[in-house]
Amino acid sequence: PGMAGIRLCLGWSTIATMILTQLTNGVAIGARKGLQWPSDRLRTTYSSCHVLPWRLTRAAFKNFVSYASRKDKSKTPSLHRLPRLFVEKNLSIGDYINFDSIQSNYLASVMRLKQGSYCLVFDGVNGEFQARIETADKRETTAVVERESRPPPVTPIGGPVLIFSPLKSKSRMQFLVEKATELGVGSLVPAKMRRTEVTKINVEKTRRHAVEAAEQCERLTVPIIHDMQDLSDILADWPPECPLFCCIERTTNEGLADEMLAHRDPTSKLSASFGLMVGPEGGYHDEERDTLMNHPAVISVSLGENILRAETAAIAGLSVMRMCGGVGDRKDGGG
């Protein structure tokens, strides 16, 4: 009814006009060639109609029909298709968000969102919200929080602590941080060991990689990124009642899964008190091995017979922990 009906009628009229035009052209061509009516001319007419751009006609018809029955664009699209961004502020319904320049460019230029479009935002504490774009510009985009899409996590940070030796390769270091975030790690603690080739890390850049991974994998939290510390300081501050599973190569220790299930508290659904440590490229120094074996919280474990690269060992260890229930699930915000 109304304008939609008029547009639909116009669409049918356009299609009919195109078909009649083709028929008329076919008859005219047959007349110019002196063909007999009706058989020869009809054959020519059919040949002319055969070149009718039927796909284009059908597409035009579908466009008119879909336009007539199109749903209101103001309705919210499916949540899993919306862009998702982390915001550095405590969010609640009704809040206004001023995205930074990088996020604004992503929303306005890359995703091409307009005023009235929707996106998802989370702050790592209060859950996930659906926000409506108020102004869309690649330099400054604003939005208003309309409703909650997922409740806050049970704990602010769910998941184990990963202690690792920073990698010299930037791409491999980024890969480790991203995959550890996706697997639900709670904290990343870079450790300076005897064979560590890196003297310092860029905490801000490392956190950006973790934020991007959290946005992509739909985590409700972002892991804590610590500054680089000496291994001795980390062990001195580690609570003796919290198990620290240390992956040591070339040992006859039990597997990580067996040890973790044996030491896991059956009354606890979370394991933020668990820790996983992987050594540097080249392995632990003999003195470091002795220090680790004498620490009351350290449990020496094996990841198999093969010698794994540092980032592979971290991902394998976190994957085993996830399978054993030692990494926070979606409702806990860990992944």
Score class of each variant (00 low, 15 high):
Leu308Trp: 10
Thr251Ile: 06
Ala213Lys: 08
Thr45Ala: 15
Gly325Pro: 01
Asp329Arg: 13
Arg250Asp: 15
Asp258Gly: 10
Ser268Gly: 00
Met260Gln: 12
Arg55Lys: 07
Val211Asp: 07
Glu305Trp: 05
Ile19His: 02
Pro266Tyr: 05
Val301Trp: 09
Gly325Cys: 07
Ser232Tyr: 03
Glu305Gln: 15
Ala210His: 02
Val154Ala: 14
Val110Pro: 10
Ile29Pro: 00
Pro156Trp: 05
Leu113Phe: 00
Pro160Trp: 06
Thr45His: 01
Ile157Thr: 06
Ser104Phe: 04
Val110Leu: 11
Thr312Arg: 06
Leu303Ile: 06
Thr291Glu: 12
Met260Thr: 12
Ser117Met: 08
Asn306Tyr: 11
Val211Cys: 08
Asp95Phe: 13
His285Gly: 13
Ala131Ile: 10
Ile29Lys: 12
Ala68Met: 02
Arg250Leu: 03
Asn105Tyr: 15
Arg150Ser: 10
Glu311Arg: 05
Gly116Ser: 03
Ile234Pro: 04
Trp12His: 00
Arg41Asn: 01
Lys71Tyr: 11
Lys192Ala: 07
Ala28Val: 12
Ile299Ala: 01
Gly255His: 04
Met260Ile: 06
Pro280Met: 01
Ser273Asn: 14
Gly158Ile: 00
Ala143Glu: 11
Val177Asn: 00
Gly11Cys: 05
Leu20Ala: 09
Gln174His: 10
Leu82Arg: 08
Ala136Trp: 01
Lys89Val: 05
Lys75Ala: 14
Pro156Val: 08
Cys119Phe: 06
Lys179Trp: 08
Asn63Tyr: 09
Val110Met: 09
Met277Thr: 03
Val222Lys: 03
Arg208Met: 14
Val145Glu: 13
Leu42Lys: 00
Ser232Cys: 09
Ala59Asn: 14
Ser66Lys: 04
Gln130Ser: 12
Arg70Cys: 12
Ser109Gln: 11
Arg309Lys: 13
Asn202Tyr: 08
Ala180Lys: 09
Glu254Pro: 06
Gly186Arg: 04
Leu220Arg: 09
Leu113Pro: 02
Arg7Met: 15
Pro296Val: 02
Gly255Met: 05
Pro1Asn: 14
Leu183Ile: 04
Glu88Pro: 00
Asn294Glu: 03
Asn253Lys: 06
Glu259Asp: 12
Arg195Trp: 10
Arg289Asn: 14
Cys49His: 02
Gly334His: 02
Thr155Met: 11
Arg147Gln: 15
Cys246Ile: 09
Arg7Ser: 08
Arg195Gly: 01
Met228Phe: 00
Asp95Trp: 04
Met18Tyr: 05
Arg55Glu: 14
Asp227Arg: 13
Pro83Ala: 07
Ile157Phe: 14
Leu292Gly: 07
Lys114Met: 13
Gln174Ile: 11
Glu254Gln: 14
Phe61Met: 15
Lys331Ala: 14
Ile157Gly: 02
Gly255Ile: 04
Lys75Thr: 15
Ser101Leu: 01
Asp332Val: 01
Ala108Gln: 03
Asp286Gln: 15
Ile248Glu: 15
Ile6Glu: 13
Pro280His: 02
Arg132Pro: 01
Gly124Cys: 06
His285Arg: 02
Gly275Cys: 02
Cys242Ala: 13
Arg70Asn: 10
Leu82Glu: 11
Gly255Cys: 03
Glu281Asp: 07
Val177Cys: 10
Val177Leu: 15
Ala59Tyr: 05
Ala136Gly: 05
Pro296Cys: 08
Met111Trp: 07
